[in-house]
């Protein structure tokens, strides 16, 4: 039974990771990151149910809180970059390099 959830979680994580790697739009990359986080949440909850204690579910809450905080900071950065450079492409923001 839990196998299906774990497979789904893996699929979601893979889709999210692939999205992060191949999409250029910062908003979409951001959404993909959220997808990976949620895939992890699903895995946590699944294992929590399988093992029979609540630790996994507690950690899922922590992940959500972190994700919310991350959205606040991340979206603010993306919006600011978009305002100054008229672009939301992650490849355009490449000044921090050698």
């Amino acid at each position: 039974m839990t196998t299906h959830y774990l497979v789904l979680s893996g699929l979601l994580f893979a889709i999210g990771a692939l999205g992060v790697l191949i999409r250029r739009n910062a908003i979409v990359v951001f959404m993909c990151v959220e997808l990976m986080l949620n895939a992890c949440n699903l895995a946590f909850v699944t294992f929590s149910r399988q093992v029979g204690n609540l630790e996994g579910q507690v950690i899922a809450f922590f992940v959500m809180v972190v994700a919310a905080a991350e959205v606040v900071v991340g979206l603010a950065i993306i919006v600011t970059i978009f305002r100054t450079r008229r672009s939301a492409s992650v490849d355009d923001a490449n000044l921090l390099k050698y």
Binding site: V20, L21, R24, V29, V90, D91, A93, N94, K97, Y98
Partner: peptide, 17 residues
């Protein structure tokens, strides 16, 4: 070695992965 630091976030993401 510092040429590795390309500035492309997605490259970093790939190396993390």
């Amino acid at each position: 070695l510092r040429r590795i630091q390309t500035g492309f976030a997605r490259t970093y993401a790939l190396s993390i992965l």
